[in-house]
Design a protein around this nucleic acid. Structure first.
Lengths: 203, 203
DNA sequence: AATTAAAGTTGACCGCGGTCAACTTTCTCC
DNA sequence: GGAGAAAGTTGACCGCGGTCAACTTTAATT
């Protein structure tokens, strides 16, 4: 049976997350102080740090929850009968729209995900869930003859992810507007599939 | 003629940069305080902020100087007679080695370059110098028949850059070791050139 | 129920990044 | 050269993220 402690811990953690989402959305991540957040969650400042190690960890936890639910949604909704290009574009565009919903959240999350201070197991876990989602799609595409079979699946997923990273970065730097994103990503993915070499070079 | 002011400003700026490089290298970026840095540069704390807007701007200035000199070096040393694949790998690997020399520097730099807080003109300038470096290479490759001519050069550079971002991110997350980097990048670039589609699909 | 150990909470406190009003140095114009 | 303006410098100060020793609450034991 669940003791008082476990219950309280769950509730406190939830209260922190709720306060965080509200305040970060309202005032932005940087402008929200931990003390303020703790007050809204009805706890002392120090307590926050027994649930999360750093301020950005709070935001990170939220983002991972979101991404997890997004991944779950994608897995169940995936339509495997459309061409790979469309599948990938739609998949990454879902994530793109999700993540660009709130620039502040996305920035901190991507900064720490793509260029973390330390090598971290959490990142690898997240990556694995990613790969579990993509591999079946790619294997099926290979089976359907849409994808070369002599390539490492890891490199293929990496290839798409790299181009997605480029798109995200382009949006952050103001190079790509939200409305252009899908066209740009599709063009990049098409390039990846068809190759940059002229056909004549492929022996 | 140059007045006392201009001269002092140049010298002070230089002193700040020198102190920054030394301290950031010795103790790391986060562990170095502005007060300490100012002391070593022989000025007051406040003065630092009339030369740089934030702490990470100092590091940023250094990185941009480095990258500029690297780009210059690459431009003059570029050997245009080797295949495009080799050119691109060697070019990006130079940058990779340069940037991974100091993880701390690279992290802050890449976080702010790829996912900046605000859209910033400085980034666009830097990108332009990038493109100026790459476009001639690609045009020449197009002329030599190594590259499709129906593609936007911007998308091609983007494609390579995206894969480079992936490599860097992989290194930061501990997925790719320095020694494996070149092999990985070459594989990715080769994929990009040859395409992920099986040849039979290319009509 | 009483006692003690373990787990959880707290806010005063620290060091740092960044600001700004007061101050000093340099320039300009007569 | 002197007076006033303009530019540059400074460190006390502020607010915040993060720590920790003292304290409170829950669990385990007899």
């Amino acid at each position: 049976m669940e003791g008082i402690r476990e219950k309280k811990k769950r509730e406190t953690r939830k209260a922190i997350m709720q306060a965080a989402v509200q305040l970060f959305s309202e005032k932005g991540f940087e402008k929200t102080s931990i003390e303020e957040l703790a007050k809204m969650a009805g706890i002392g400042k120090g307590t926050v740090y027994s649930y999360f190690q750093t301020k950005s960890d709070i935001l990170h936890a939220f983002c991972e929850d979101e991404l997890d639910s997004l991944h779950h949604e994608l897995t169940t909704n995936a339509n495997q009968d459309i061409p790979l290009l469309e599948q990938m574009v739609s998949l990454y565009m879902s994530e793109f729209h999700h993540i660009t919903e709130n620039r502040e959240f996305a920035r901190i999350f991507m900064q720490q995900t793509a260029f973390p201070r330390d090598v971290d197991l959490k990142h690898l876990q997240h990556e694995d869930s990613y790969l579990k989602l993509l591999f079946p799609l790619l294997e099926r595409a290979q089976a359907k003859g849409e994808l070369r079979k002599d390539l490492d699946l890891l490199y293929i997923t990496g290839h798409f992810y790299g181009l997605y990273l480029l798109l995200l970065s382009g949006w952050f730097r103001g190079r790509v507007q939200k409305e252009e994103a899908e066209v740009a990503l599709e063009a990049l993915f098409r390039q990846a599939l068809e190759g940059l070499h002229p056909q004549s070079l492929i022996s």
